[in-house]
Protein backbone atom coordinates (compact mmCIF):
# COMPACT_ATOMS: atom_id res chain seq x y z
CA UNK A 1 0.00 0.00 0.00
CA UNK A 2 1.33 3.41 -0.92
CA UNK A 3 -0.17 6.71 0.11
CA UNK A 4 -1.02 8.45 -3.14
CA UNK A 5 -2.33 11.87 -4.00
CA UNK A 6 -5.40 12.02 -6.21
CA UNK A 7 -3.56 13.61 -9.15
CA UNK A 8 -0.81 11.03 -8.87
CA UNK A 9 -3.35 8.23 -8.87
CA UNK A 10 -4.58 9.56 -12.21
CA UNK A 11 -1.01 9.89 -13.38
CA UNK A 12 -0.28 6.30 -12.44
CA UNK A 13 -3.32 5.16 -14.39
CA UNK A 14 -2.16 6.99 -17.52
CA UNK A 15 1.45 5.88 -17.08
CA UNK A 16 0.47 2.23 -16.64
CA UNK A 17 -1.86 2.24 -19.62
CA UNK A 18 0.68 4.01 -21.85
CA UNK A 19 3.31 1.45 -20.89
CA UNK A 20 0.87 -1.36 -21.56
CA UNK A 21 -0.44 -0.15 -24.94
CA UNK A 22 1.55 1.94 -27.42
CA UNK A 23 -1.65 3.24 -29.06
CA UNK A 24 -2.53 5.20 -25.90
CA UNK A 25 -1.57 8.89 -26.03
CA UNK A 26 -2.51 12.15 -24.33
CA UNK A 27 -3.45 15.31 -26.18
CA UNK A 28 -4.33 18.73 -24.89
CA UNK A 29 -3.17 22.08 -23.66
CA UNK A 30 0.02 21.94 -21.58
CA UNK A 31 -0.14 18.17 -21.04
CA UNK A 32 3.49 17.67 -22.10
CA UNK A 33 6.29 19.92 -20.98
CA UNK A 34 4.15 21.73 -18.41
CA UNK A 35 2.82 18.46 -17.03
CA UNK A 36 -0.86 19.37 -17.04
CA UNK A 37 -2.47 22.22 -15.13
CA UNK A 38 -3.02 19.87 -12.15
CA UNK A 39 0.16 17.84 -12.73
CA UNK A 40 -1.68 14.73 -13.84
CA UNK A 41 0.80 14.15 -16.68
CA UNK A 42 3.89 15.58 -15.00
CA UNK A 43 7.11 14.40 -16.65
CA UNK A 44 5.40 11.69 -18.68
CA UNK A 45 6.71 13.34 -21.86
CA UNK A 46 10.22 12.52 -20.69
CA UNK A 47 9.32 8.86 -20.67
CA UNK A 48 7.04 8.70 -23.73
CA UNK A 49 8.09 11.61 -25.94
CA UNK A 50 6.35 14.62 -27.40
CA UNK A 51 4.07 12.73 -29.79
CA UNK A 52 2.53 10.64 -27.01
CA UNK A 53 2.15 13.66 -24.73
CA UNK A 54 1.04 16.01 -27.43
CA UNK A 55 1.00 19.66 -26.42
CA UNK A 56 -1.65 21.15 -28.64
CA UNK A 57 -2.33 24.75 -29.57
CA UNK A 58 -5.35 26.28 -27.82
CA UNK A 59 -7.91 24.94 -30.25
CA UNK A 60 -10.33 22.79 -28.30
CA UNK A 61 -12.78 21.89 -31.03
CA UNK A 62 -10.01 21.00 -33.45
CA UNK A 63 -7.82 18.93 -31.16
CA UNK A 64 -10.88 17.09 -29.91
CA UNK A 65 -11.82 16.36 -33.52
CA UNK A 66 -8.26 15.22 -34.13
CA UNK A 67 -8.65 12.77 -31.28
CA UNK A 68 -11.83 11.47 -32.89
CA UNK A 69 -9.98 10.95 -36.17
CA UNK A 70 -7.08 9.27 -34.38
CA UNK A 71 -9.51 7.01 -32.49
CA UNK A 72 -11.36 6.10 -35.69
CA UNK A 73 -8.07 4.99 -37.20
CA UNK A 74 -6.92 2.83 -34.31
CA UNK A 75 -5.28 4.98 -31.64
CA UNK A 76 -6.61 5.43 -28.10
CA UNK A 77 -6.31 9.14 -27.35
CA UNK A 78 -6.88 10.71 -23.95
CA UNK A 79 -7.93 14.34 -24.24
CA UNK A 80 -7.27 16.58 -21.28
CA UNK A 81 -9.59 19.51 -20.88
CA UNK A 82 -7.34 21.93 -18.99
CA UNK A 83 -10.61 22.90 -17.38
CA UNK A 84 -13.61 20.85 -18.45
CA UNK A 85 -15.51 24.08 -19.07
CA UNK A 86 -13.22 24.80 -22.02
CA UNK A 87 -14.71 21.79 -23.73
CA UNK A 88 -17.86 23.75 -24.39
CA UNK A 89 -15.75 24.94 -27.32
CA UNK A 90 -15.50 21.30 -28.41
CA UNK A 91 -19.18 20.55 -27.92
CA UNK A 92 -19.70 19.78 -31.60
CA UNK A 93 -16.86 17.28 -31.84
CA UNK A 94 -17.85 15.61 -28.58
CA UNK A 95 -21.55 15.39 -29.39
CA UNK A 96 -21.68 14.89 -33.16
CA UNK A 97 -18.54 12.92 -33.70
CA UNK A 98 -17.34 11.27 -30.49
CA UNK A 99 -20.90 10.51 -29.42
CA UNK A 100 -22.85 9.82 -32.57
CA UNK A 101 -20.43 8.82 -35.30
CA UNK A 102 -20.36 5.14 -34.49
CA UNK A 103 -24.13 5.02 -34.89
CA UNK A 104 -24.38 7.21 -37.98
CA UNK A 105 -21.62 5.14 -39.58
CA UNK A 106 -23.65 1.99 -39.02
CA UNK A 107 -20.86 0.49 -36.92
CA UNK A 108 -18.08 1.23 -39.42
CA UNK A 109 -15.95 2.96 -36.81
CA UNK A 110 -15.47 2.82 -33.07
CA UNK A 111 -14.22 5.78 -31.06
CA UNK A 112 -12.07 4.61 -28.15
CA UNK A 113 -11.22 7.90 -26.48
CA UNK A 114 -11.24 9.45 -23.03
CA UNK A 115 -12.05 13.08 -22.42
CA UNK A 116 -10.91 13.93 -18.91
CA UNK A 117 -10.15 16.90 -16.73
CA UNK A 118 -11.19 19.06 -13.81
CA UNK A 119 -14.79 20.12 -13.49
CA UNK A 120 -17.02 21.38 -10.74
CA UNK A 121 -17.19 24.44 -8.52
CA UNK A 122 -13.80 25.33 -7.07
CA UNK A 123 -12.95 28.20 -4.78
CA UNK A 124 -13.96 31.49 -6.33
CA UNK A 125 -12.86 30.59 -9.83
CA UNK A 126 -15.73 32.47 -11.42
CA UNK A 127 -18.61 31.15 -13.49
CA UNK A 128 -16.78 29.94 -16.57
CA UNK A 129 -14.28 27.83 -14.63
CA UNK A 130 -16.97 26.37 -12.34
CA UNK A 131 -19.00 24.32 -14.76
CA UNK A 132 -20.65 20.96 -14.43
CA UNK A 133 -20.72 19.79 -18.02
CA UNK A 134 -21.92 16.32 -17.10
CA UNK A 135 -25.43 17.71 -17.10
CA UNK A 136 -25.03 19.29 -20.53
CA UNK A 137 -23.60 16.15 -22.08
CA UNK A 138 -25.85 13.51 -20.54
CA UNK A 139 -28.34 13.64 -23.41
CA UNK A 140 -25.71 12.84 -26.05
CA UNK A 141 -26.13 9.25 -27.22
CA UNK A 142 -23.03 7.09 -27.39
CA UNK A 143 -21.12 8.76 -24.56
CA UNK A 144 -20.30 7.15 -21.24
CA UNK A 145 -19.99 9.61 -18.37
CA UNK A 146 -17.92 8.91 -15.27
CA UNK A 147 -17.29 11.09 -12.19
CA UNK A 148 -14.45 9.90 -9.95
CA UNK A 149 -14.19 10.96 -6.34
CA UNK A 150 -11.30 9.22 -4.53
CA UNK A 151 -7.70 8.43 -5.47
CA UNK A 152 -8.63 4.74 -5.47
CA UNK A 153 -11.61 4.99 -7.79
CA UNK A 154 -9.93 7.67 -9.92
CA UNK A 155 -7.12 5.30 -10.82
CA UNK A 156 -9.21 2.19 -11.35
CA UNK A 157 -11.90 3.98 -13.33
CA UNK A 158 -9.46 5.89 -15.54
CA UNK A 159 -7.69 2.68 -16.48
CA UNK A 160 -11.04 1.15 -17.38
CA UNK A 161 -12.02 4.24 -19.38
CA UNK A 162 -8.79 4.07 -21.39
CA UNK A 163 -9.41 0.40 -22.17
CA UNK A 164 -13.04 0.96 -23.10
CA UNK A 165 -13.79 0.99 -26.84
CA UNK A 166 -16.27 3.85 -26.47
CA UNK A 167 -15.88 7.58 -25.84
CA UNK A 168 -15.82 8.22 -22.11
CA UNK A 169 -16.27 11.64 -20.53
CA UNK A 170 -14.28 11.40 -17.33
CA UNK A 171 -14.90 14.12 -14.74
CA UNK A 172 -12.42 14.89 -12.03
CA UNK A 173 -13.08 17.64 -9.48
CA UNK A 174 -10.92 20.69 -9.18
CA UNK A 175 -11.00 20.56 -5.34
CA UNK A 176 -10.16 16.86 -4.96
CA UNK A 177 -6.71 16.66 -6.59
CA UNK A 178 -4.86 16.81 -3.27
CA UNK A 179 -6.77 14.07 -1.46
CA UNK A 180 -4.58 11.20 -0.26
CA UNK A 181 -5.33 7.53 0.04
CA UNK A 182 -3.44 4.28 0.37
CA UNK A 183 -3.65 2.47 -2.94
CA UNK A 184 -3.08 -1.22 -3.58
CA UNK A 185 0.40 -2.06 -4.83
CA UNK A 186 -0.76 -4.25 -7.69
CA UNK A 187 -2.69 -3.25 -10.76
CA UNK A 188 -6.46 -2.92 -10.50
CA UNK A 189 -9.23 -1.83 -12.82
CA UNK A 190 -12.74 -0.87 -11.71
CA UNK A 191 -15.93 -1.41 -13.71
CA UNK A 192 -17.22 1.72 -15.45
CA UNK A 193 -20.87 1.04 -14.80
CA UNK A 194 -20.99 0.28 -11.08
CA UNK A 195 -21.93 2.65 -8.28
CA UNK A 196 -20.14 2.46 -4.93
CA UNK A 197 -22.00 1.99 -1.67
CA UNK A 198 -20.03 4.37 0.52
CA UNK A 199 -22.05 3.69 3.68
CA UNK A 200 -24.65 1.05 4.28
CA UNK A 201 -27.78 2.23 6.07
CA UNK A 202 -31.50 1.73 6.49
CA UNK A 203 -33.26 5.11 6.82
CA UNK A 204 -32.85 6.86 3.55
CA UNK A 205 -30.84 6.48 0.34
CA UNK A 206 -28.56 9.38 -0.53
CA UNK A 207 -27.39 9.38 -4.15
CA UNK A 208 -24.43 11.62 -4.85
CA UNK A 209 -21.29 11.94 -6.94
CA UNK A 210 -17.94 13.70 -7.19
CA UNK A 211 -17.14 16.28 -4.50
CA UNK A 212 -20.67 16.26 -3.05
CA UNK A 213 -19.79 12.83 -1.67
CA UNK A 214 -17.70 14.69 0.92
CA UNK A 215 -20.45 17.12 1.81
CA UNK A 216 -22.75 14.16 2.26
CA UNK A 217 -20.27 12.25 4.43
CA UNK A 218 -19.67 15.32 6.56
CA UNK A 219 -23.41 15.50 7.16
CA UNK A 220 -23.59 11.78 7.84
CA UNK A 221 -20.98 12.11 10.58
CA UNK A 222 -23.33 14.40 12.51
CA UNK A 223 -26.39 12.37 11.68
CA UNK A 224 -24.83 9.15 12.95
CA UNK A 225 -24.34 10.76 16.35
CA UNK A 226 -28.03 11.47 16.49
CA UNK A 227 -28.91 7.92 15.58
CA UNK A 228 -29.75 8.31 11.91
CA UNK A 229 -28.68 5.57 9.57
CA UNK A 230 -28.58 6.77 5.94
CA UNK A 231 -27.26 4.72 3.04
CA UNK A 232 -24.84 6.67 0.84
CA UNK A 233 -24.24 5.75 -2.79
CA UNK A 234 -21.61 7.41 -4.95
CA UNK A 235 -22.91 6.99 -8.49
CA UNK A 236 -19.45 7.05 -10.18
CA UNK A 237 -21.10 6.26 -13.50
CA UNK A 238 -23.47 9.06 -14.46
CA UNK A 239 -24.30 7.40 -17.75
CA UNK A 240 -25.34 4.67 -17.73
CA UNK A 241 -26.74 4.82 -14.21
CA UNK A 242 -26.27 1.70 -12.09
CA UNK A 243 -29.92 1.01 -11.40
CA UNK A 244 -29.14 -2.36 -9.92
CA UNK A 245 -27.39 -0.75 -6.96
CA UNK A 246 -29.76 2.22 -6.83
CA UNK A 247 -32.82 -0.02 -7.02
CA UNK A 248 -31.62 -2.41 -4.31
CA UNK A 249 -31.10 0.51 -1.96
CA UNK A 250 -34.47 2.10 -2.66
CA UNK A 251 -36.26 -1.22 -2.11
CA UNK A 252 -34.69 -1.19 1.33
CA UNK A 253 -35.07 2.44 2.43
CA UNK A 254 -38.00 3.61 0.29
CA UNK A 255 -36.73 7.19 0.60
CA UNK A 256 -34.30 9.01 -1.68
CA UNK A 257 -32.31 12.20 -1.50
CA UNK A 258 -30.13 13.24 -4.42
CA UNK A 259 -27.20 15.54 -3.65
CA UNK A 260 -25.50 16.93 -6.73
CA UNK A 261 -23.30 19.82 -7.72
CA UNK A 262 -24.81 20.40 -11.16
CA UNK A 263 -27.63 22.87 -11.56
CA UNK A 264 -31.17 21.78 -10.80
CA UNK A 265 -32.67 22.36 -14.22
CA UNK A 266 -31.83 19.56 -16.61
CA UNK A 267 -29.40 18.09 -14.12
CA UNK A 268 -28.20 14.57 -13.43
CA UNK A 269 -30.67 14.44 -10.53
CA UNK A 270 -33.56 15.41 -12.78
CA UNK A 271 -32.81 12.38 -14.92
CA UNK A 272 -32.51 10.14 -11.87
CA UNK A 273 -35.85 11.31 -10.47
CA UNK A 274 -37.52 10.58 -13.78
CA UNK A 275 -35.91 7.15 -13.95
CA UNK A 276 -36.90 6.32 -10.37
CA UNK A 277 -40.47 7.33 -11.15
CA UNK A 278 -40.40 5.11 -14.23
CA UNK A 279 -38.96 2.07 -12.50
CA UNK A 280 -39.50 2.25 -8.77
CA UNK A 281 -42.40 4.57 -8.07
CA UNK A 282 -44.27 1.98 -6.00
CA UNK A 283 -41.27 1.56 -3.73
CA UNK A 284 -41.27 5.20 -2.65
CA UNK A 285 -42.66 6.31 0.70
CA UNK A 286 -41.95 9.96 -0.08
CA UNK A 287 -41.24 12.07 -3.15
CA UNK A 288 -37.60 11.99 -4.17
CA UNK A 289 -35.82 15.07 -2.83
CA UNK A 290 -33.40 16.77 -5.17
CA UNK A 291 -30.64 18.94 -3.68
CA UNK A 292 -28.79 20.70 -6.47
CA UNK A 293 -26.80 23.82 -7.13
CA UNK A 294 -28.79 26.95 -7.77
CA UNK A 295 -29.78 27.70 -11.36
CA UNK A 296 -27.35 30.58 -11.67
CA UNK A 297 -23.88 31.25 -13.08
CA UNK A 298 -21.55 30.47 -10.17
CA UNK A 299 -20.80 33.81 -8.50
CA UNK A 300 -17.26 34.89 -7.69
CA UNK A 301 -18.03 36.13 -4.17
CA UNK A 302 -17.19 33.39 -1.67
CA UNK A 303 -20.33 33.74 0.43
CA UNK A 304 -22.55 33.75 -2.64
CA UNK A 305 -20.64 30.78 -4.04
CA UNK A 306 -21.32 28.83 -0.85
CA UNK A 307 -25.00 29.63 -1.21
CA UNK A 308 -24.92 28.29 -4.75
CA UNK A 309 -23.88 24.73 -3.90
CA UNK A 310 -25.43 22.32 -1.40
CA UNK A 311 -23.90 22.55 2.10
CA UNK A 312 -23.63 19.75 4.71
CA UNK A 313 -26.05 21.47 7.10
CA UNK A 314 -28.75 21.47 4.46
CA UNK A 315 -28.20 17.76 3.94
CA UNK A 316 -28.49 17.10 7.70
CA UNK A 317 -31.81 18.90 7.83
CA UNK A 318 -33.11 17.17 4.75
CA UNK A 319 -32.25 13.70 6.03
CA UNK A 320 -33.90 14.37 9.39
CA UNK A 321 -37.01 15.64 7.72
CA UNK A 322 -37.26 12.74 5.34
CA UNK A 323 -36.35 10.05 7.87
CA UNK A 324 -39.03 11.18 10.28
CA UNK A 325 -41.73 11.89 7.70
CA UNK A 326 -44.82 9.75 8.20
CA UNK A 327 -45.67 7.31 5.46
Amino acid sequence: MAETLFFNALREAIDEEMARDSTVLVMGEDVGHYGGSYKVTKDLYKKYGDLRLLDTPIAENSFTGMAVGAAMTGLRPIIEGMNMGFLLLAFNQIANNAGMLRYTSGGNFKIPMVIRGPGGVGRQLGAEHSQRLEAYFQAVPGLKIVACSTPYNAKGLLKAAIRDDNPVLFFEHVLLYNLKENLPDGEYVLPLDKAEIVRKGEDVTILTYSRMRYHVMQAVKSLEKEGYDPEVIDLLSLKPLDFETIGASIRKTHRVIIVEECMRTGGIGAEIVASINDRLFDELDAPVLRMSSQDIPTPYNGALENLTIVQPQQIIEAVKKMATAKV
Binding site: L25, L51, V68, A70, L75
Partner: peptide
Protein backbone atom coordinates in the same frame (compact mmCIF):
# COMPACT_ATOMS: atom_id res chain seq x y z
CA UNK B 1 -18.79 5.95 -44.11
CA UNK B 2 -16.68 2.97 -45.04
CA UNK B 3 -13.92 1.66 -42.81
CA UNK B 4 -13.00 -0.81 -45.55
CA UNK B 5 -12.44 1.95 -48.08
CA UNK B 6 -10.92 4.36 -45.56
CA UNK B 7 -13.75 6.81 -45.99
CA UNK B 8 -13.86 8.72 -42.69
CA UNK B 9 -17.23 10.36 -43.52
CA UNK B 10 -19.60 12.16 -44.54
CA UNK B 11 -19.63 15.20 -42.14
CA UNK B 12 -22.76 17.28 -42.26
CA UNK B 13 -21.64 20.37 -40.37
CA UNK B 14 -19.25 22.85 -41.90
CA UNK B 15 -15.61 22.26 -41.06
CA UNK B 16 -16.03 19.40 -38.59
CA UNK B 17 -14.45 16.84 -40.88
CA UNK B 18 -11.18 18.76 -41.11
CA UNK B 19 -10.04 17.99 -37.54
CA UNK B 20 -11.08 14.35 -37.97
CA UNK B 21 -9.00 14.11 -41.14
CA UNK B 22 -6.13 15.83 -39.35
CA UNK B 23 -6.41 13.19 -36.64
CA UNK B 24 -6.18 10.40 -39.21
CA UNK B 25 -3.08 12.05 -40.67
CA UNK B 26 -1.61 12.39 -37.19
CA UNK B 27 -2.26 8.69 -36.70
CA UNK B 28 -0.13 7.81 -39.74
CA UNK B 29 2.74 9.85 -38.37
CA UNK B 30 2.26 8.36 -34.90
Amino acid sequence: FSAEHKLLGGFAFIGEGIPVATGAAFQSKY
